[in-house]
């Protein structure tokens, strides 16, 4: 293995079912159902997936959902805004824990 991440591995995702076929079938059936048209459109779900892909920093998901959102008629300006939403939530999540820091600091400090 030369690298941990290889773009060709994305097309081999289905092979994850090889040693647990039933679990694999459940996962892929559920995955398809999740991304179908529902109360949210398939396009809205794809944009959410792209944002989450950045939040969890999954290169496979970023590859797949960048192309998927483009094929659903989104453009790179919209995709960039999605990344900012993901970044804002991740950044905000770090920052809001500052309140926790303040509580601990206030508790441990003399007034």
């Amino acid at each position: 293995m030369k690298t941990y991440y290889d773009p060709n591995d994305l097309a081999r995702f289905h092979a994850i079912a090889d040693h647990a076929p039933e679990l694999g079938q459940h996962f892929f059936a559920w995955y398809r159902a999740v991304f179908g048209e529902g109360a949210l459109t398939a396009r809205e779900k794809s944009l959410i997936a792209l944002g989450v892909a950045h939040a969890v920093q999954c290169p496979y998901c970023i590859d797949a959902y960048t192309k998927d959102t483009l094929e659903r008629g989104c453009d790179v300006e919209q995709l960039t805004e999605v990344v900012h939403v993901a970044a804002a939530i991740k950044g905000g999540a770090a920052l809001v824990h500052g309140i926790q820091m303040r509580k601990v600091a206030d508790q441990a400090s003399m007034a």
């Binding site: 396009r43 483009l70 094929e71 659903r72 008629g73």
Partner: peptide, 17 residues
């Protein structure tokens, strides 16, 4: 036509937009 190496979106969805 798509501006790049990807397939076009669903026609009906895009037409509404």
């Amino acid at each position: 036509n798509p501006v790049g190496a990807f397939l076009p979106p669903d026609q009906a969805v895009l037409e509404r937009e």
